[in-house]
Amino acid sequence: MTQASGATGDATAGGRRLLLLHAHPDDESIMTGGTIARYLAEGAEVRVLTFTLGEEGEVIGDEWSQLAADGGADQLGGYRILELTRALAELSPAGGDVLRPRFLGGAGRWRDSGMAGTPSAQHPRALVQASPEDLVDTLVAEIVDFAPQVIVTYDDAGTYGHPDHMLVHETTVAAVPRALPQLPASGLKVYESVTERAALDAGLASAAGRVPDGWRMPQPGELPGYPESAITTEIDVTAYVPQKSAALAAHATQVTVAASGTEYALSNNILQPVFDHEHFILTGRWGGRATEMSDGTDGVRETDLFSGVG
């Protein structure tokens, strides 16, 4: 099974292990879908660990609207497990092992908190109500079990300020030092998944003439982005854009993919590009062949998350 646990070995092909930490189903495809597909195709072991079921997501369309937390049934989280299962299958290599969902503490342990200040944040099972010790202990156990050489998380702003995203970042920062003494000596690198402003601007400029009916272009500065100088690592996922778009489409309650396959929108109908390069900031590295690694400060970006480990 691609999502093996308790793996050991070096970071050569077949021994590389990538752990991606996400807050809700669909985040994995939006932020890192191409990276997941590329490293699975290259034979790496990949684990996508999602912290909640995304119960508070805003449902697009009427078909599944009553599943939403405010729609009566409050069954959206269970349905989004299905969407995540379908999305990860789209990102898996044809004819190979199919990546399966995995949830921190098991499916349903913690609940989507919704945005700051909303009633959902006061739910007793909301992620933001969880004991920090419980979150960190549970994540440490996952990291030790999988023994990754690379961990991908969010930036301290949680990408766009969502409390669950911010908590994923905080939990990662606290858990990694505790897990390190129990990991192999092959090295560990930690990245934040981010959007490069230049890539965003280029993608929006390219899409300007094909905005689907009912969608709109974002206002200047409405979507988050980092300057080119901040980016340390750029992964070329051009060959995997069709898989990434299919994975986004699998999250149909949350995401609409344009007919072009190169743009998508959430429930707000704001157009966003489907990037053919995904961007990261290297924020921590321990062990490995550190002298072989660039951190972007020399103007040369890494093109492989596993560079220098193993």
Rank of each mutant, 00 (worst) to 15 (best):
S260N: 15
R100T: 14
D10R: 06
P163M: 11
L18P: 00
V257R: 01
A107W: 08
V98R: 05
P148M: 02
T283W: 07
A207P: 07
S29P: 04
D295G: 12
V136I: 11
A126R: 04
A126L: 07
P184K: 03
V176A: 02
V241G: 02
V176K: 01
P25E: 05
W286P: 01
R111D: 11
D156N: 14
D112A: 06
L88W: 10
A208H: 13
A87I: 03
I151R: 00
G15H: 06
I235V: 13
Q149N: 06
Y160M: 06
P184Y: 02
R210V: 09
V140P: 06
V128I: 15
V241K: 01
L183T: 05
L204R: 07
V140H: 08
L19R: 00
T50K: 05
Y191L: 06
G33P: 03
E90I: 03
G33K: 00
M293D: 11
M166T: 11
E55V: 05
A174Q: 13
P227R: 10
T159S: 14
S229M: 05
T85H: 12
A259W: 07
Y226F: 12
W215P: 07
G9I: 00
G77L: 09
G105A: 10
V152W: 00
L104E: 09
T153P: 01
M31S: 12
F146Q: 00
